[in-house]
């Protein structure tokens, strides 16, 4: 009996992982898979801890529900700043609430920049953006152990254009649930 439930649970978790894998390739954001290493394979590969938090509650994650504020997982920034714009406060509060209520959930906050200026300075600026989001979530009561940050600087643009419109889309923090 115990065994059966375990198997069922595992299958469920596994299929969820698969499912979330599918939606992430079809969805608007890419760059969620951390995989594809050249060097040693010891890396923390993106997908394997997925859905660990959810277990009981899954009837379709609110994270994937287009009508939920949790569906929004990108926060945009102005040029050369890491200040969170007021319009993103409701989105971030919703994520904070979700994280507080789902202590098993783990979130990686990716900081990104537009292509202008120096690459290494942009890595630093991207980290500042990711940190700003992290601090906001922590101030809303999220435990630091649930949060991780990484900066990609200008290395992973979502819009490959070279104009203000593209730059505005690239200056962002992405919330990537693990």
């Amino acid at each position: 009996m115990m065994k059966k439930t375990m198997i069922l649970l595992l299958t469920l978790v596994f299929s969820m992982a698969l499912l979330s894998g599918c939606t992430s390739t079809g969805g608007p954001q890419d760059g969620e898979e951390a995989g594809a290493q050249v060097g040693d394979g010891s890396g923390a590969g993106g997908a394997d801890t997925a859905a660990a938090g959810g277990a009981g509650a899954w009837t379709g994650s609110p994270l994937e529900d287009p009508s939920s504020p949790l569906y929004e997982k990108v926060v945009y920034f102005d040029f050369d700043t890491a200040e969170i714009r007021p319009e993103y406060v409701p989105t971030l509060r919703a994520h904070a609430e979700y994280l507080v209520n789902t202590p098993g959930a783990r979130l990686v906050i990716e900081g990104h920049c537009d292509e202008r200026g120096s690459r290494e300075y942009n890595i630093a600026l991207g980290e500042r953006r990711a940190d700003a989001v992290k601090r906001f979530l922590e101030a809303e009561g999220v435990s630091p152990v649930q949060l991780e940050t990484i900066s990609y600087g200008e290395e992973r643009p979502v819009d490959l254009g070279h104009n203000e419109q593209a730059w505005a889309k690239n200056r962002r923090a992405e919330l990537v649930y693990q």
Partner: peptide, 26 residues
């Protein structure tokens, strides 16, 4: 790599390169 590589720097004897790689996800 499929992950970012950046900031190559030559050693002063020209025999080594230091660089930044995100290949392990970080």
């Amino acid at each position: 790599s499929k992950e970012p590589l950046m900031s190559p720097a030559w050693s002063p004897d020209g025999r080594k390169l230091a660089y930044v790689s995100f290949e392990n996800g970080r």
